[in-house]
Design a protein around this nucleic acid. Structure first.
Lengths: 111, 111
DNA sequence: CGAGATACCTTGACAGGCGAGGTATCTCGT
DNA sequence: ACGAGATACCTCGCCTGTCAAGGTATCTCG
């Protein structure tokens, strides 16, 4: 967990949408995938994750359904909506711009 | 102002430190420089700026002094401290890691 | 039968961003 | 002489996202 949460603040929704764009998934799995892809440098706290799901669903960017009853604990699956895909595209665009701007503002200058 | 504020949240201090690393400056000028370097895509709100100055000074990362009395409104100048330079180096490192992690998490996947 | 993993969820506190409002000085056009 | 707009500073209180802490239930393995 080498990246502080405040730095990632505001990217939570985009990260979740990006995971769901690859296929339906559920909270625990999404979180594991994120941690893994981040090389252990970042992971959601559970409270953050479920707060985000609620927010995303209220905004119509994802929808949810309970998984089939099988062995193990019940799972709530999430699926990205069309509006969610549009939001994700916008988020990716914004991230691209953010990188350019922050690189310009934080860059190492030799003086 | 195409980049939303939440995305930049947490980067405010690093941006200010980076400006001050190039030389002492004052609020209004820092803000102008930031806007200009960001190509108009981002700028601090005044309240954000002065809140940040106070926070940074309390944390010993910058110090301040009133400029010489000349024509025009008085100016409070800020200077980066040694601790501030160390923080800036850490922030730059973190930003570099953040880019790598977010690129991995938000990337466009063709499936 | 207990520990640990899987899997979900809520509450309340905290911190940063910022809209709105305020003060004072200087310049420029009329 | 006067008003508008730029320069330059500052504070108060709200909003929103994060998260520590706490809670529930199921399955596996020793």
């Amino acid at each position: 967990m080498s990246i502080s949460a405040d730095i990632l603040r505001g990217h939570t929704d985009a990260i979740i949408l990006a995971q769901l764009a690859a296929g339906d998934s559920y909270g625990y799995e999404i979180n594991k995938n994120v941690s893994q892809r981040a090389g252990g440098a970042y992971g959601f706290k559970e409270a953050t994750l479920y707060t985000a799901f609620k927010r995303l669903e209220q905004n119509g960017l994802i929808r949810s359904y309970w998984g089939e009853d099988g062995p193990g604990a019940r799972r709530r699956y999430y699926a990205i909506t069309l509006a969610g895909r549009e939001q994700l595209a916008a988020d990716r665009q914004e991230w691209s711009e953010t990188k350019a701007v922050l690189d310009a503002l934080i860059e190492q200058k030799e003086g």
